[in-house]
Design a protein around this nucleic acid. Structure first.
Lengths: 189, 189
DNA sequence: TCACCAAACTAACAAGCGTTAGTTTAATAT
DNA sequence: ATATTAAACTAACGCTTGTTAGTTTGGTGA
């Protein structure tokens, strides 16, 4: 765990501001003011506003890709893989709530890295869907529409960034377990 | 059903653009180009960019408030009320996919109407939560954390705008039913 | 035929944008 | 003490922003 550089501070401050108003509505002067410096001084540490967005989003996207890769390769049951996906989202989001907001809402403002981001996202969703389909084949999962199941789970998981900060006394494991129960077990008796 | 005015065309075109890039990243010149006119000409029909956002968001928010009000007043079971909420979201979203994107992502750029919007949203969530809590009390719903249940359902429903446009042969009733099954019944066997 | 009017236009505004260039400051290493 | 350097600064750039003012256009009703 390397110590946080000034560039890291800029990136995490930017992520906080991007969460509140979105990438496009946050100016370099806003960011500088939040850091207690002038806008021009930011450029001693970063090359462009774009670069900040890229740094926020791509690193998280790659975390998801790596996590999914481990899950896919494991020998667990498909239901157990879904539980692991829930835990993956809870953990990544708990560690970088602000960044998750940019990933969800500002990915379209990635320029050079947009294609790469979309590739990672498509691969992630394909892996997710294949787990659900295999779970249906093996009778672990109800024979419902697999796209609807994935959509429902994934949108809930993607929105965790809105919800986790409100639970100050958060235990990530407890949340992941409760959420898995609701998402997988349903709510009716 | 009154015929669409030029102002309505501007608002629906704006909603389409706002969905793609967000309110802040869409300029009045972008909007004008999409309409095939010059930016200044927009001001023959609308008073400000703000006003467009307000027109998009507030009308939808009030639709939700009215829908929830009917559901709350009905004599149905709590599970049945949840089914009605799912249908409410599917129907409103199917009729105004682009507007739902602004409601979800650009509500914070409402200025004068921000407080009003937040009031409607808070009331809506309070009603939603009370249905779930009553469902738990009456043993219709598993005794899980009611906030987690609401969070899970609501975030899925709020993300429908991303998903509905991909299903071109959409039957709103079928989608509402399938989604209710997954959200309420869960997915495991 | 002519007055009217909605809806387009051209031109321009002040303010704000991301960014660059060159300079100063203050701490560290020699 | 002196040289080096990271990190701040001031000043300004060219461009884009939302918006206004005043003008032209083309169709409708008297």
């Amino acid at each position: 765990m390397k110590q946080e550089t000034r560039k890291d501070e800029i990136i995490s401050t930017a992520a906080r501001l991007f969460k509140e108003k979105g990438y496009s509505a946050v100016t370099m002067r806003d960011l500088a003011t939040s850091m207690g410096i002038k806008a021009a001084s930011l450029y001693n540490h970063i090359n462009s506003k774009q670069e900040i967005l890229k740094a926020i989003i791509i690193s998280i996207a790659e975390e998801f890709t790596n996590g999914m890769s481990s899950i896919i390769q494991s020998e667990a049951s498909n239901i157990s893989k879904l539980n692991s996906i829930v835990a993956l989202h809870v953990n990544i989001t708990a560690n970088n709530t602000n960044g998750m907001a940019s990933l969800n809402n500002d990915w379209m403002h990635l320029e050079d890295q947009l294609d790469y981001y979309l590739q990672l996202r498509n691969e992630y969703e394909a892996s997710f869907l294949s787990i659900i389909k295999e779970g249906i084949s093996s009778s672990e999962i109800k024979n419902s529409n697999p796209e609807i199941i994935m959509f429902s789970m994934l949108t809930t998981l993607r929105s965790l960034y809105l919800w986790i900060p409100k639970k100050e006394d958060l235990n990530a494991n407890d949340l992941a377990n409760s959420l898995s129960e609701v998402l997988i077990g349903g709510i009716n008796i």
